[in-house]
Design a protein around this nucleic acid. Sequence first.
DNA 1: TTGAAAGCGCTACCAT
DNA 2: ATGGTAGCGCTTTCAA
Lengths: 361, 361
Amino acid sequence: MSQRRTSADAGPATIRDVAERAGVSVASVSRVLSGNYPVSDDLRRRVMKVVRELDYVTNAHARSLAGGGTPTVAILINHITGAAFAHVAKGVEGAASLRGWLTLVGTTGDDPERELALVNLMRRQGVTAVVLLGGAYDFEEYQLRMARFARSLDSAGSHLVLVGRPALKGDAPATTVDYDNEGGAYAMASHLLSAGHRHVLVLPGPAELTTAQGRLNGAHRAFEAYGVPFRQDMVHHGPYDFEHGLRAVEHSLEQGPPFTAILAGTDVVAAGAMQALRSAGLRVPEDISVVGYDDIPLASQLTPKLTTVHVPYEEMGRVALRAVADRREGGAGRRGGDGDQFVLGTHVVVRQSVRPPERQG
Amino acid sequence: MSQRRTSADAGPATIRDVAERAGVSVASVSRVLSGNYPVSDDLRRRVMKVVRELDYVTNAHARSLAGGGTPTVAILINHITGAAFAHVAKGVEGAASLRGWLTLVGTTGDDPERELALVNLMRRQGVTAVVLLGGAYDFEEYQLRMARFARSLDSAGSHLVLVGRPALKGDAPATTVDYDNEGGAYAMASHLLSAGHRHVLVLPGPAELTTAQGRLNGAHRAFEAYGVPFRQDMVHHGPYDFEHGLRAVEHSLEQGPPFTAILAGTDVVAAGAMQALRSAGLRVPEDISVVGYDDIPLASQLTPKLTTVHVPYEEMGRVALRAVADRREGGAGRRGGDGDQFVLGTHVVVRQSVRPPERQG
DNA sequence: TTGAAAGCGCTACCAT
DNA sequence: ATGGTAGCGCTTTCAA
């Protein structure tokens, strides 16, 4: 210990140490540091001097217990390495620290048990809100589970925010921030159809995942609108990863029906698909058109640049945080009511990976 | 409020509510919940019943104040969207939650002021350790700054961990987890040189960043070892991003000296470089060889798959957390001493982006 | 085995 | 403008 303080006691300096050394009361020190109360310049100077000497910082736990405390948001992600999630997290964290709020991050690894444990952990922490990110597996159970979370957090003075997940039916006290997932898929599929494509390989993602379902539905609707038959044997479900895009296309190239375009569930899946096409000696978009979903940086870094659906992930994070902050400001008047619901728009970003089939190989 | 509790008071249930309702003392409730003390089965049952009824969870702040409390690690990143950082964070978070620890995340946006503010914020939170991620700008100031952080955290009972940053000189109480950055660069450059390349475009990254300096030095040493002159006009500093790789190569192609290979500072820069080459009608590796650094998933998703240097990011995160945990277990015996230092190995991952120049165009 | 009570460090209220 | 002090919810002696 190279600690040098008035008394030889161990541990961090407390407000009392500061008060003694400065020859003032703890109340005064508290007031100087909180800055929400008038104090004389002299007192402020004396206190701040000691604060610097002792390198003192207030104990957040004590402050929190006593009523003050830094608002904290918890973000619960399935996998921290997903690019889309990272962008939402960035939005939340940015908006949070702008307000001086703290951000906690936890990963569930797709494990419902861990999700529950984390929600409770966060509740213990007295977080202002818990933000759950990303598509969910919408078993019948999901709604009940989330409703329980919502109530549990609400009664603990916290709040549940669902981002990119289906809203809760009924009056569960949760806020939902979602994007027009199906609309984006509809527009993306329409883009392909209006370019003349009639044989489209569809890689929507995991069959049970709500986002994948939405994207598939959107595509389906577009096909109907164009009067083009939607063939189930051209739909391949699978994980939202590069590998799946790769394998699915390899497989379809070998033994599936012919196709002129690929509608991928995410940009990463599209990247995998493009890799498979290239390995097979096919060019994008000359031979086959490919589109993605998400518009993560990768999309514009692929060659050719990927036409995809832009999802305002970072904005969603900001909206989620703002909703929580507003609700806090709003005070008791709005507490306990049904959650708000926000839906952000999506739009197709046309780049270079689509071409009409007539002009394809 | 749809809260339903014994008394009509607002706010989350407290240990006292549980005690009253169960007809036992708060001490008993505490003991049942902490589980670190013998209690009768009857008491445990009674208490747990009420806990479930009230959906009670302990207040982490109160527990923390009173002595208990969940250990918490704080990760401070420059940009949350960097893939390499995300992997370190994953390693830390994974190892942390395995032990029931919490993880806090903050982003500094490359701003030293914000970094300082965050370190203090974390100190207030009483975190077990603060992990600073990623290359630093090693001005003279850096060492002093970090030494100050280290001492400040140490005297607050916390601990500083530097990951992927230069270790602190002197006896500052910090732990460093680094990788053999220069060695990796040396090996990577050697790989290119032994393949016969003599005209190599070098894109090490930002000139002031320690990781970029290390990578440049490693390359330099390799050139010396091979007796190949290292030309300064073939070195282009710039950010670790796709755009830089793109621009630097476009520029060099137009007006730089000719080259047969590109040694990029990161995989993302390499991806940008490859894009520029492709746009210029050059093939990789037939016309130009390209190598990266980091071995993030992107590397194996590029076409051709990128030969690069594997950096064990996730492992570094795990090591960082283990170091902190061990130090905590170790107890007072090791406290306050110099920090430990860990250096993890790197190695070249040979894929498909390199070919001898004779066989290039 | 269980209960009573003294703090943990801080804020906020009530005096002065 | 400043000081004294009662809690915030919990853990942990110390007694019973």
